[in-house]
Amino acid sequence: MKLKRAAYPYIVWMMVFILMPLLLIVYFAFTSGDSQSFLDFTFSLNNFKRFFTPTYLKVLTRSVNLALLSTIISLIVGYPLAYIISKEKSKRQNIMILMLVIPMWMNFLLRTYAWLTLLGRNGFINNILAKIGVSPLNLMYNNKAILLGMVYNFLPFMVLPIYSVLTKIEKNLIEAAEDLGANSITIFRKVIFPLSLPGVITGITMVFIPAVSTFVISDLLGGGKYSLIGNVIEQQFRVTGDWHFGSALSIVLMIFILITMAFTSKIDKEKEGGGGGLW
């Protein structure tokens, strides 16, 4: 194995900040004991046994469902948006992409907090409704608010990869399809959409992963009423102090994400679309 010298710093970085923490999590997950004395830990599968009880399985199911739903909505909203942007003149394209990205320059927490003032009982939306004589709606602290927060925060991660793939599709291919007599619906169905799949797959992974592991959005917009798996993990480290169980939960979540990624990259390969995704 020959490595260029320039690669060494990255290797060291990966060892210290990626490999070591991962090994530590695995170590914690398969042991139990007083969380502070490393040497006194004993091997144990109890953490996983505890996870496979209805309480925690229910939480995982809910997280996955919400994440899937938000991914689907992001796709339904994001694909046409990416398509529309990619059809614009390049100058307008840049402006539109900029507009999509500018909110991301602001802190994620702040952006989510902003929804509190919009959705609250005395918030902006309800104030306007009151002016036109509609009784206030309960917009905050429910699953819909969590979903909204997820879609709002992660939508750009869906739009950007799809957009970048769409702009790279060869015009010749579309013209060829037109010459062969395909109408615009057929062109989209048979040429554009299949070629944009790598971007779609990347978009799906990039929305699904943060959505399934979030704990901030469910906390702020769900009002702490609905725990997601991210909340339960956070709880282990910050409230209960059970790092072993927290690590086990993290591993379950990681395996789950790995499976989804393997699954999506398989579709990706079958569709033989070349490059263009973000990885």
């Binding site: 309480t55 725990s227 709880q235 209960t240």
Partner: peptide, 14 residues
């Protein structure tokens, strides 16, 4: 009893 609190709380929150 902290592990029991945690289980109970997660039950309520799920």
């Amino acid at each position: 009893i902290i592990a029991e609190y945690d289980r109970i709380w997660t039950d309520i929150m799920s």
